[in-house]
Amino acid sequence: MPAGALTKKRPLGDRSFQVIALAAGLLVLVILVLIAVSTGQQASLWFTSQGWKIFSTTWNPANNQFGALAFIYGTAITAAIAIVMAVPVSVGIALLLTEVVPRRWARPVVTVIDLLAVVPSVVWGLWGILVFAPWLQRIYTSIGNGVDGIPVLGSLFGPPVSGASFFTAGIILAFMITPIVTSLSREVIATTPTIDKEGAYALGATRLEMIRGTVWPHSKGGVTGAVLLGLGRAMGETIAAALVIGSSATITSHLFAPGYNMPSVIANQFGEASGVFRSALMGLGVLLFAFTIIINIVARGIVERSARRQRGA
């Protein structure tokens, strides 16, 4: 064998490939950092010119007033409504798929969920504003008239009512976040060890009792993570909300009243904005980015930790 036949430097192509793959992976981190830096820089004018007034309740571009509280409130309210509606339904479907439905029927049910996920945001918005909102308006009006004057209910559901409102946005957001909460919950629930479930059944438990005794304690953490991810999604979902929320920057307890949230005002008003106005909208974007990143990190952390606990167990 010729001397040195076994020695050959690692081919250039092989090394380059590794470098390129690494660079592609790093791109994720780079983009996230760039997002923070570039939007933050664009928003700085808002912070510097408004100071702490950025959290005031007055948003009046004509008067150079850019207080964001109304939008933060709106984001919180619509997301809360969406979560309250979507979580029981999503977890219910997830349990249905893993515990109730026989194998053969699982596929069609999953298809329904996939179809729900594939409807684009703008189509939800189109249907929402042209069909759903007018229909809801009639319902809101009757409820509103019914509870008008009653202490708590009246301030929540009493007039003013409008088809395009916080509540409508919340419902549509609920539709939109159901797929992700369902599929993630389902993944978590499906990892419940069969031994545990069989143990419960062997003691004569009904299905509900088995779920409460074994599936739920096991999946609590992961489902919480899934819910948080849904929350993040509800906060950031833009176009559907923009079309049905009513575009009124007011803080009110009346859920059937028109309102506004962070992504919607950005979507609707960015086109005509300039100077401090535009910077303010960027600032809202920065806030939204920060909120959703934090929520997602916490949520993914919870999901990962519960998955790791299961793998180790």
């Binding site: 992976g25 994720v28 999604r233």
Partner: peptide, 27 residues
């Protein structure tokens, strides 16, 4: 590093799409 990239990549799927628009607008 790959744990971080994988984690942040999943986090990135939760970033609202409007932020991507604002980002590209800025840069």
């Amino acid at each position: 590093l790959s744990a971080l990239i994988g984690f942040m990549s999943d986090v990135m799927t939760g970033v609202p799409s409007i932020i991507m628009g604002l980002f590209i607008f800025s840069i």
